[in-house]
Amino acid sequence: MKFQEFTKGIIKNNAVFALALGLCPTLAITTSVENALGMSLAFAFVLISSNLIISALKRFIPQEVRIPCFIVIIASLVTAIDLFIHGYSPTLYEHLGIFLPLIVVNCIILGRAEAFASKHSVSDTFLDAAGVSVGFALAIISVSAIRELLGSGTIVIFGHEVVPAFTSSPAVVMLLPPGAFLTIGILLALLKRAKVI
């Protein structure tokens, strides 16, 4: 087990900012910090569990059919998780329900399965998946904090006002798709400029 497998995915190889993967959910759901938290949780759960399964099965899966195998495993897992949460925790489903179908189209999951889990041990895969999850969470939470702050003029997380409303006329464009591109573009430029990634 190498601890750097955990840390590399957080900042240096950050999925969103360094690898430009998973931009579709990042653009779509970062309109509030609450959404980003829900997505981070659901994402971490699916990424860790699907990549552990794929890593455990890597010797069994032939090279030429690996992609369909990965997709079948990931999609079935997401569906099963969706059904379980819906049945056993309706309140959690209310918050996470809309994010779970979005995870199927999240290319980071398939990307890590292909690039890491299918070539490394189960323990290293766990560290890698956990690190990538933390990196993804950091990325979408920072983007959503900027967008919610400017676009709604406040930050509300599960009913608690973290930043009280400071303006009555927020820049609603930040909540719309252009705001997502602007925020991600400027953050990316700043991170490159500061040589963080």
Binding site: L57, F60, I61, P62, E64, V65, P68, C69, V72, I73, S76, T79, A80, L83, F84, H86, G87, Y88
Partner: peptide, 28 residues
Amino acid sequence: KSVVVLTLICLITGGMLAVTYNLTRERI
């Protein structure tokens, strides 16, 4: 071999999904 493995994986995950669906149907 690829055909067998892919078929097996599809069968197993399909079966697991069917079980999950039945386990959760009433509760949903």
